[in-house]
């Protein structure tokens, strides 16, 4: 979808922001550009909608050199969300969301319908928020509007520059989760910039780790955690790499559908109406999409060695502490072979 071919970007003051970048962002995936401040990740993102122009090399959009596409037309095909949100304070929420449809000259009915649809999607009931002004909204709500505005004209690509970076941790977490759900619905190609490795691991199908304007590693989160390409990647991930691996590992990948006899008790203890175990410890079941890290945490919390995996209030299997540990042991073996 978006292809970087030996792209260099040098600013007029001599700073080399991007240095020989070559990689491809696949259609329909979320690719996270991650790295420390000044590593060139934002510049890389802005090369896609021509807010920056490469000094050497080519960026392709759907196979076409983006230098051949008129900048404003290109940008209207690409959603843009920034950390500072940048809502138009003098316009109502509805007018803000309608920005790109209006630039594209949609008729009013179509625009109105689309605005309502997006406000609903972002959890802002249109009847309540349409006529509000940005100043009346909280930071989290404002960024929801920011995302709705970027999605308004159904862009093929979304660029998100630390979109949740300025929000408080709880709001950030909520918006990340919601955005993951939305992303499944919209099937847009997303380039997401962050300096937070946890956010990168959570949001990304693919992670492009950058340092000093160069691509250090381009991999899936699991592969990057399993085999950091360099010392830099390893350091950037941090000392709790194994725990982070558990975070990107879904329960569904390690659960057993056949319940072993020794763990029968936790399954029997599960009652959709009551989550308290017989011995008094609190047992919270996991869902197949929860991470192995959550499962392990709840095992430790409840003092058990296994947890029921529950979907739609029925037990569909168990996940055991042993399997979580075992998954990692397998990997150690696989790497040493």
């Amino acid at each position: 979808m978006i292809q970087f071919d030996n792209v260099h970007k040098q600013y007029s003051d001599g700073t080399q922001a991007v240095n020989g970048l070559s990689f491809e962002v696949e259609e329909g995936t979320t690719t996270v550009l991650v790295g420390p401040s000044g590593c060139g990740k934002t510049t890389t993102m802005q090369l896609v909608n021509r807010l920056e122009e490469p000094t050497e090399g080519t960026v392709y959009y759907d196979g076409t050199d983006i230098q051949e596409l008129p900048a404003t037309e290109l940008r209207r095909q690409i959603g843009y969300v920034i950390q500072d949100i940048g809502l138009f304070d003098h316009m109502t929420i509805a007018e803000n969301v309608a920005t790109v449809p209006e630039l594209k000259g949609w008729d009013d009915d179509r625009t109105d319908e689309r605005v309502d649809e997006l406000l609903d999607l972002m959890g802002l009931p249109p009847e309540e928020y349409r006529e509000s002004y940005p100043g009346e909204l909280s930071g989290g709500q404002q960024q929801r509007v920011g995302v709705a505005r970027a999605l308004a004209a159904g862009p093929d690509v979304m660029l998100m520059d630390e979109p949740f970076g300025a929000l408080d941790p709880i709001t950030r977490e909520n918006l990340q989760d919601e955005f993951l759900d939305i992303q499944e619905e919209i099937e847009t190609t997303i380039i997401f910039v962050t300096h937070d490795i946890n956010e990168a691991l959570k949001m990304g199908d693919k992670i492009a780790m950058m340092n000093d304007g160069e691509l250090v590693q381009y991999d899936t989160p699991a592969a990057m955690l399993e085999a950091p390409a360099t010392k830099f990647v390893e350091d950037f991930i941090g000392p709790d790499r194994t725990l982070k691996q558990l975070r990107v590992l879904q329960v569904s990948e390690i659960m057993r559908t056949e319940v072993p006899d020794e763990h029968r008790d936790v399954v029997d203890a599960f009652d959709p109406a009551d989550t308290v175990m017989a011995d008094g410890g609190e047992l919270i079941p996991v869902t197949p999409t929860d991470s192995a890290q959550v499962a392990l945490s709840r095992c430790i919390q409840a003092g058990v060695r296994a947890l029921p995996v529950v979907e739609d209030a029925t037990v569909i299997g168990v996940v055991t502490e042993e399997d979580i540990r075992g998954y990692h042991a397998d990997e150690i073996e696989a790497t040493s072979e």
């Binding site: 500072d84 138009f88 630039l103």
Partner: peptide, 26 residues
């Protein structure tokens, strides 16, 4: 607000559209 101008540019406003829709009304 520079962020509003950047968002306007990023969403595909021309210089004139930024002036007419964002800068002048504000």
């Amino acid at each position: 607000d520079p962020a509003a101008v950047e968002a306007g540019t990023g969403l595909g406003m021309t210089r004139f559209e930024r002036l007419w829709r964002v800068r002048l009304p504000v």
